[in-house]
Write a protein that binds this DNA or RNA. Structure first.
Lengths: 143, 143
DNA sequence: GTCGATGTTTAGCCCATGCTAAATTTGCGG
DNA sequence: CCGCAAATTTAGCATGGGCTAAACATCGAC
């Protein structure tokens, strides 16, 4: 049975997570795209996320407002130092969750999809446990 | 490195998950509360989730609209058969994720909090892998 | 039966995240 | 330089999910 506890606390955390999930996804994607092609445009993000360019523009404006990104009218989108830190953190966490799922034995496809949903809800403690599991599972002879 | 793939697909799934997360949390909670106290009132859910009773009322009205719950004015909130099925499913999944996290070695507190965030993003395949891990980890001498 | 506490609903507000349509800017081909 | 295509922005709309204030219903105490 699941341990009894204060649900309101957990749910508040889950809701708070939601508020930052999209921001994290965006900074992660902006970072990716900048690495891949040198600069990031709204249209790149729109294609990446499968949403309209209008949605991207408005979301990016929130990132700018919150100090994660900067951009000039009709210019490319760049990350601030704060945004870069978040992107690095998100990227590292994403990779741990992804590799953890692979270690657990699921397919690459599933690991890829599930890691994107799960990554935002993994606490530091659980992330460390996942890392330990990866290290423990990876034997020296493994490729 | 994380395998390259169509991000827009994954993110669409993540967004679609969000649309049903709260509904699942609610039916799970309604089911819990009904089991505990025989009936579920809006105020019970408000306390559970730490939100206002107004928010609960409106969310429940969406559950009713979507066929998960039913209620009469000023009456208690009940689950439809469809809602009960979702609640059972969510409860089972939640417990697997919770026990899985415990098996992984995190604290009860963390397992409780993280499982509530993670449960909605776990595919069938990953859930099965978690179940296998629990079974594999649980030794006969364990309490 | 009335009153007050408690619970529910309604009205009205906010923000985030999605959309389309239309206006604007940019930048390239000619 | 002109014009067109592509990208961006603006305007306007929807839904979900949060809130407070105020109206309304229910129920137990008296």
């Amino acid at each position: 049975m699941v341990k009894s506890h204060d649900h309101s606390q957990s749910h508040r955390r889950v809701r708070a997570d939601h508020a930052t999930e999209l921001a994290e996804d965006y900074v992660e994607a902006i970072d990716d795209i900048c690495r891949e092609s040198g600069s990031c445009r709204a249209v790149d993000l729109a294609r990446r996320f499968g949403v309209s360019n209008v949605t991207v523009t408005r979301t990016v404006s929130r990132l700018v407002r919150d100090g994660y990104a900067q951009t000039e009218p009709y210019g490319p989108i760049e990350l601030t130092p704060k945004g870069k830190r978040v992107a690095e953190h998100a990227r590292a966490r994403h990779q741990i969750v992804y590799r953890f799922l692979l270690s657990l034995g699921v397919s690459e496809k599933t690991a890829s999809v599930d890691s994107e949903g799960i990554e935002h809800h993994v606490s530091r403690e659980t992330l460390h446990a996942m890392q330990r599991f990866i290290d423990h599972t990876a034997r020296p002879s493994d490729g």
